[in-house]
Design a protein around this nucleic acid. Structure first.
Length: 105
DNA sequence: AATATGACATGCT
DNA sequence: AAGCATGCCATAT
């Protein structure tokens, strides 16, 4: 799988994340059919724009940016605005990546 | 071509 | 729970 197609897939998956939901980088990669390419997801988020990048968090529910970063606060604000409860830079435990958990249940 | 870097993940200590 | 080590993949130097 070349990176171009992978990027397109990942892009699509990210765009498909419903409002109020969050996904881990690995979950996105997996949904795109690219298991283990979490870092590629990161690359896509950085390079491509117009995506709901704020809905993508780390596997532990924490935001990927440093806590003092502006992007961090942006993301946090956006998520809260969309109905996602963030505490201390991370979504509430057990609610993180909800759809993913539901998917594997 | 080789090494370093990054919005990561997982396992072990 | 927190930190360290290893695996991963694409880019930049």
């Amino acid at each position: 799988m070349n990176s171009a197609a992978a990027s397109a897939k990942i892009c699509a998956v990210i765009r498909a994340i419903p409002v109020g939901e969050t996904r881990s980088y690995a979950a996105v990669a997996r949904e795109a059919g690219l298991p283990g390419r979490a870092r590629l997801v990161v690359w896509v988020l950085k390079s491509s724009d117009g995506l709901p990048w704020h809905r993508v968090l780390r596997a532990d529910g924490k935001i990927g940016f440093p806590a003092d970063s502006e992007a961090f606060q942006q993301q946090q604000a956006r998520l809260q605005r969309e109905g996602v409860a963030i505490q201390n830079g991370r979504v509430k435990p057990g609610k993180a990546i909800s759809l993913d958990a539901h998917l594997w249940a």
